[in-house]
C-alpha cells in the first residue's frame, strides 16, 4: 500500500479561544481528489494551513508527504502547491513576473521556471496577456494565473481552497474543466476545499464533510450513501392524491424503512433493497392508488450533506 500523501491524526487547533479543528482525522491517498466540504468556519482553510506548516496544531499529529509541518514546513511547501481563496497575485507585476518570482521562491532554476511558465501560460490560455499586469486581468484570468502559480513547481500535492469562489458561471466551469483535466491526465493528488456541492460531486473521488472543526463523515459518494442514507430510495408519483389507507399499506410492507410525502401526489420511499418495490406496487394496487411513476433514485450529495449538517446542528 502506498504511503498517504497527507494524514491528520486527532488534530485539534485552537484559535482565539475556540476550536477551529477538533480531534480531526483524515488521510489522502496518492492520485485522488479529496473534497473537504463544509460551511464557512468549518475548518477547511485551517486544515490547509496546518498541513503546510503555516500554523501549528494545539495537539495531534500531521504528516504531509511523510514530513512534519511543524519542523519541516519549508520542505513541505517546496513540494505542495496552494491556490488560496483569493488569487493573491502581485497586481503591479505581469503574469510572467509573478510566475518568475514564485518559481524562484519554490527553488526552481531560472531556466526551468521560464520553460514551465511558458508551458502553463499556454495551458491556461494566458500567453497573449503574459506581459500585461495581473491587475488588468478579469477574475477568471486571475484565478487561472493563480492556478498556474500553484502548479508551477510540479507539486506532488495540490491544495485548492474555494477555487471558484466569486467567479461567474463561465469562469467557474472553466476552472472545473481544468481541475478535471489535472485529475484525469496527470494523476494529480488534490485536496479541494469547497462549499460548492456540485463542484465536489463532479470533481472529487472522496468527500470529507465538516462542520465547526469536526469531521462528520468521509468516503466515496456511495460509501456516504450507505453510511448516512442507507437503503434504496424511490420517488412515487400518483395521478390523484392517494387515500390515507394507501400510505398505511405501503408502510406496512416488509422492507419499507420510511415513506415521506413530498407533496399531495409525490412520495419518497426508503426501502431495504430493490426487491421490496414490487410488493409496494402490489399494496398500492390493492388500495386502488393511481400510481403513474416509480423511479428508484440514489441520495444526492446534497441530501447527504444537509442530513449530516442538520444532525450535527441538532446534536450541538
Amino acid at each position: 500500500m502506498t504511503q498517504p500523501m497527507l494524514t491528520f491524526q486527532h488534530v485539534t487547533h485552537h484559535y482565539n479561544g475556540h476550536a477551529a479543528l477538533q480531534d480531526f482525522e483524515l488521510s489522502t491517498a496518492a492520485g485522488e481528489v479529496l473534497g473537504l466540504l463544509g460551511p464557512n468556519g468549518a475548518g477547511k482553510t485551517t486544515s490547509v494551513r496546518l498541513a503546510n506548516g503555516l500554523i501549528n496544531p494545539s495537539s495531534g499529529t500531521i504528516r504531509t508527504l511523510g514530513l512534519d509541518p511543524i519542523a519541516q514546513g519549508d520542505q513541505i511547501r517546496a513540494q505542495t502547491g496552494v491556490l488560496t481563496e483569493t488569487p493573491a497575485l502581485y497586481e503591479r507585476l505581469t503574469a510572467r513576473q509573478n510566475l518568475a518570482f514564485f518559481g524562484q521562491l519554490m527553488g526552481m532554476s531560472a531556466e526551468d521556471c521560464r520553460q514551465r511558465s511558458q508551458e502553463l501560460l499556454g495551458y491556461f490560455d494566458l500567453t497573449e496577456r503574459a506581459d500585461d499586469r495581473a491587475g488588468t486581468y478579469s477574475k477568471g484570468m486571475k484565478q487561472r494565473l493563480a492556478l498556474a502559480r500553484a502548479l508551477l513547481h510540479r507539486p506532488r500535492l495540490l491544495f485548492l481552497d474555494e477555487p471558484t469562489s466569486g467567479l461567474d458561471p463561465e469562469a467557474a466551469a472553466q476552472v472545473h474543466e481544468l481541475i478535471a483535466t489535472l485529475r484525469d491526465t496527470q494523476d494529480q493528488t488534490v485536496l479541494l476545499c469547497t462549499h460548492n456541492l456540485f463542484e465536489a460531486q463532479r470533481l472529487c473521488d472522496r468527500l470529507a464533510i465538516m462542520n465547526r472543526g469536526r469531521l462528520l463523515a468521509v468516503g466515496t459518494l456511495d460509501e456516504l450513501r450507505r453510511e448516512v442514507m442507507p437503503g434504496l430510495w424511490a420517488e412515487l408519483r400518483f395521478y390523484q392524491p392517494p387515500e390515507a389507507a394507501a400510505l398505511h399499506a405501503v408502510r406496512a410492507v416488509s422492507g419499507v424503512l420510511q415513506v415521506e410525502e413530498l407533496d399531495a401526489q409525490t412520495w419518497r420511499l426508503q426501502a431495504q433493497e430493490e426487491a421490496v418495490l414490487p410488493q409496494v406496487v402490489t399494496a398500492l394496487t390493492a388500495q386502488a392508488a393511481q400510481l403513474t411513476a416509480l423511479r428508484p433514485n440514489q441520495a444526492s450529495l446534497e441530501d447527504i450533506y444537509f442530513k449530516l449538517q442538520s444532525a450535527h446542528t441538532e446534536g450541538a
Binding site: 520542505q75 511547501r77 505542495t80 496552494v82 488560496t84 493573491a88 502581485y90 519554490m106
Partner: peptide, 9 residues
C-alpha cells in the same frame, strides 16, 4: 498578497 508568499518554500 501575504498568504501566497507564506505558502512558498
Amino acid at each position: 498578497t501575504l498568504e501566497a508568499l507564506l505558502y512558498t518554500a
